[in-house]
Write a protein that binds this DNA or RNA. Structure first.
Lengths: 338, 338
DNA sequence: CATGAATCTGTTCTCGCTAACAGGTTTCCG
DNA sequence: CGGAAACCTGTTAGCGAGAACAGATTCATG
């Protein structure tokens, strides 16, 4: 049973101070690990803290220090694997540094929703802002806010005015396409995500550049919207039938694509190889198990937090750091039959 | 460009008050919509607020009112569709009521992690606590904390001492099994989730009771761990081959199950019907498109928030409210061939 | 044993806001 | 036109911490 000194209320440092026979500042110093405290005094204070189950008020602390120890995260489409995993990773990295996280989810990402989200987070009181997976159309907004608030954008392209971090989408895309080329494919199509997304654009460019550098002809290009539904429509439409392999910009579109192909009698990978991007937990149970590119979100979370803390501490040089992705080979890719 | 009155700092109500030629309390009253303010004064204050881009400090407000306008959510396994969707729905419902949300994710749910999570959330300063999808082993902990903090547990079983809300898992399970019975199946197996989860247990019981009430023999029972992997292993093992239909406790296990069946030459739905639970966004693109039970998380979020606000306002009667699920029929189920 | 330096500890003020009370205006009505 | 009841506004005192300064110990050293 927690023991409060005044009727029923949670104890404050003043209550602890009275119980330990010291001033409230001594309690504060003990709490903050100040060096110049006599060992016996510290022990007495700690005992009082323990006895009355004191916990410090992060609210009062925030008011006094003007540091909330909270990071705001604006996350677009958190139902999707990538953004959600990134958010979880940031949360867990933040917790390890005694920071907490407030997330604001947007799905319909118009400028108004974004600035409302930023305003909401700022109003809550945050020390830094992290924006996950934005579309390029929104860059302006972040710039405007970054002057007041340390901001990190999770994307794989550098930006002169912003701190950025991400998984190297471009490299991952080249790895995927290189894998297909290595298996002997020469007609390699791409199903891209919406090209106003940084990630979609980087994966598209990686596909294009890897083909070009291998001396292969331009492949067929189609655009989806990240959903399995859009992949399905493209697969069912038949526009990609000339290609022997397809690099889909994410696993969900790859899933839909395979669905569409199979429905029209094209076998995967016998007639057409499909490679995805993300390595969803279920990707190994797709039919056939999906070859894909894995992103290390845990590493990304730690990286993001390191950069955010540096930004909070006033490091103003715009950084840009990348995590290397990893190719996961399963059964949805093989050599071409013709 | 935001206009601060003192050097570079964010303006406070005192700055606004000076600009408007009133006392800081008048500003506070305008901000809080206090009725007895002369219209001309209110206008002057609002104009000053607008001009200097004042925003109130939620920190100071929280300290003065001892209300943080923040709800803590302890969410288990947020990588999974259900818990994640529930969390998003609560966030969005909370925002609509001017509350913000702090989430604490647990995956390895031992007692220690849970109480650490609760302690973390409480330390952040929250007005109420919401626990999503717990396992029954953890009930004790919530009871202990509910005395100090208004608490709502998201689960479908009532509890004498706690506020609870959820989607009616039991009813959903009976709907799923009734659908299979309606198609003529008599040997209906169940792949359950871990039975220390409330939802897994309710779905299991719904399956059992529906069979019994239809006068059918007991079906085969197998236990998975929510993952597609576990479903795959059960499908590939062959233990369920005597059954003509399987009710899987979630879509992911259904996916793995189908994978396992197909690998051993059993066709779905020709040889065996499979029905899932959740209606993942991609479930309609599984091969074959999955028949399943949909949960309305948006409604659940609104419900949860309504109950939480009631609890904050001191409503102490333990409530228990349920949302009705919905059957989604696709192509993974059909009548038995034999 | 004096005396300055190094350690420890306490007082007061501040962070930005609301609660509670008090004082000053109107307004209304006899 | 006087007085009470509305209405509007201001003053002061917290909320629970930390910052800054100042004072009180201890300690070492000549």
């Amino acid at each position: 049973m927690p023991e409060a000194t005044r009727g029923g209320q949670k104890p404050s440092i003043y209550d602890v101070a009275r119980a330990a026979g010291v001033s409230h500042m001594t309690v504060s110093r003990v709490l903050n690990g100040h060096p110049n405290i006599r060992e016996s005094t510290r022990a007495r204070v700690l005992q009082a803290i323990d006895e009355m189950q004191y916990t410090r008020s992060s609210i009062a602390r925030a008011l006094a220090t003007s540091r909330t120890m909270r990071i705001g995260v604006l996350v677009d489409s958190p139902v999707q694997w990538g953004p959600n995993s990134t958010l979880r990773a940031i949360e867990s990295a933040a917790r390890a540094q005694h920071y907490s996280v407030s997330a604001f989810a947007t799905s319909d990402e118009d400028a108004e929703t974004i600035s409302a989200g930023i305003a909401d987070l700022v109003a809550q009181g945050i020390d830094a802002l992290c924006v996950i997976a934005p579309r390029s159309s929104a860059s302006e907004l972040f710039r405007e806010h970054s002057s007041n608030m340390p901001t990190l954008v999770i994307k794989s392209e550098p930006d002169a005015h912003l701190h950025t971090a991400g998984v190297d989408q471009y490299a991952g895309a080249r790895m995927a396409v290189a894998h297909l080329i290595g298996q002997g494919h020469r007609e390699i199509a791409h199903v891209a995500g919406p090209l106003d997304w940084y990630d979609a654009r980087a994966r598209w460019q990686g596909w294009r550049d890897e083909l070009r550098d291998a001396g292969l002809p331009e492949g067929r290009f189609a655009q989806g919207d990240w959903t399995a539904e859009s992949g399905y429509r493209l697969g069912a439409a038949g526009d990609l039938d000339r290609s022997t392999a397809v690099f889909a910009a994410n696993d969900q579109m790859a899933l839909g694509l395979i669905h569409g192909f199979v429905e029209r009698g094209r076998r995967v990978p016998a007639d057409v190889s499909v490679i995805g991007f993300d390595d969803l937990p279920d990707a190994r149970h797709f039919l056939p198990p999906l070859t894909t590119v894995r992103q290390d979100f845990t590493a990304l979370g730690s990286l993001a937090l390191r950069l955010l803390l540096a930004a909070i501490d006033g490091d103003d040089t715009a950084t840009h750091e990348l995590i290397a992705p990893e190719l996961i080979v399963r059964s949805s890719t093989s050599g071409p039959s013709r």
